[in-house]
């Protein structure tokens, strides 16, 4: 496959643009997606190319954004609804969890809900407490909605395309910190590059410890792995990519080899991604376990404004490396 290097933001933009060119039923809606060109510039140029019918600015109405997408999807369109940031999607939790995720079930399969919610996620540059969340696990709690969280350009491209083409609702989160990060993505000739929903990926092989992560946590895990290698510890980095479905087969096969695990996430520690993976490992891999499962997550506190204490609250590669050293 021929590839080129682009920022993750551009990979997402290209995936969305190509799917809109491919299928007239795909449209985008959200705050500032049209005339403003997207708060994160993901829909840059879309209004000019696709027009107001398919690139729809909405009022600041997250409940309606969440629910209109459900109705339009049930009726046969394939909406891609953007929450400017995932913090605002809290206002739409009922539409997402109670409607997008359940209408198929409570009508016993009568309707399909082929929609994608996109949401920028993660802590920003002193964005302060209410705008500094990475709450993907909250949304992954509910059956009926798939949750995808890419860590790089190539994955973002293939995952978003699969999400748009799938007949189930998908919440797709995009780490704000990763938007400018360059990485390879397929070139113009390979517009059908799809990453199956729920398929994880080994980002680095190693025999001593398994680092399980998603989205930005993958970067910290890879940085930590490079640092650990200098001390002779080889870490395997599992990028789950999707929080629902969860590719535990991949985690188990890695864990059977390393017998040790550190879970890395940008989100909060209680009732978390880390809690879930750790619980599943002890339930299903007890005989392979040589050390306690460790978790590296944000500190259990709202994020402050001031720079130094903001950084104290968040995970980083050093915290990952330190956790590994406690168990190898």
């Amino acid at each position: 496959m021929a590839v080129r290097n682009v920022a993750m933001r551009e990979a997402i933009r290209r995936a969305l643009q190509e799917e809109m060119r491919r299928d007239d039923d795909v449209f985008v809606m959200g705050e500032e997606v049209a005339y403003w060109q997207g708060t994160h510039r993901v829909t840059r140029g879309f209004l000019e190319e696709f027009g107001e019918r398919r690139v729809r600015d909405t009022p600041i109405s997250e409940m309606a954004i969440g629910g209109v997408a459900v109705g339009a999807a049930m009726a046969g369109l394939r909406p891609v609804a953007e929450f400017m940031t995932i913090n605002f999607a809290f206002l739409a939790l009922d539409a997402i969890a109670n409607h997008a995720g359940k209408v198929r079930y409570f009508f016993d399969g009568m309707f399909k809900v082929p929609l994608v919610y996109r949401a920028a996620s993660g802590w920003g540059n002193q964005a302060t407490a209410s705008h500094s969340h990475s709450p993907e696990p909250i949304f992954a709690h509910f059956p009926g909605v798939y949750v995808g969280c890419p860590s790089n350009s190539m994955d973002a491209y293939g995952m978003l395309k699969a999400a748009i083409r799938d007949d189930n609702p998908v919440l797709f989160t995009e780490s704000i910190a990763l938007y400018p990060k360059p990485g390879p993505m397929p070139d113009d000739e390979d517009t059908d590059y799809l990453i199956p929903i729920g398929k994880g990926d080994i980002k680095r092989e190693g025999a001593d410890v398994t680092l399980v992560a998603y989205a930005r946590g993958v970067d910290w895990a890879l940085q930590a792995a490079r640092q650990l290698a200098k001390d002779g510890v080889e870490a395997e980095v599992v990028d789950l990519r999707w929080l629902r479905p969860l590719d535990m087969e991949l985690v188990y096969s890695s864990f059977k080899k390393t017998n040790r695990c550190v879970i890395v996430e940008e989100s909060l520690p209680m009732y978390s991604f880390g809690s879930e993976i750790a619980a599943l490992l002890q339930e299903n891999m007890f005989d392979y376990m040589d050390a306690p499962i460790k978790r590296v997550a944000a500190e259990d506190v709202p994020l402050p404004y001031s720079k130094e204490i903001e950084l104290l609250a968040l995970p980083d590669a050093q915290k990952v490396a330190d956790a590994v050293k406690e168990i190898v």
């Binding site: 992954a140 189930n168 929903i197 729920g198 535990m248």
Partner: peptide
């Protein structure tokens, strides 16, 4: 469990995947 999700060949399902329905 039936009809929690639409059938899809885009979804990676294994015996050990969680939350795939």
């Amino acid at each position: 469990f039936q009809n929690t999700y639409a059938q899809s060949n885009l979804v990676h399902k294994t015996d050990m995947s969680v939350g795939a329905g």
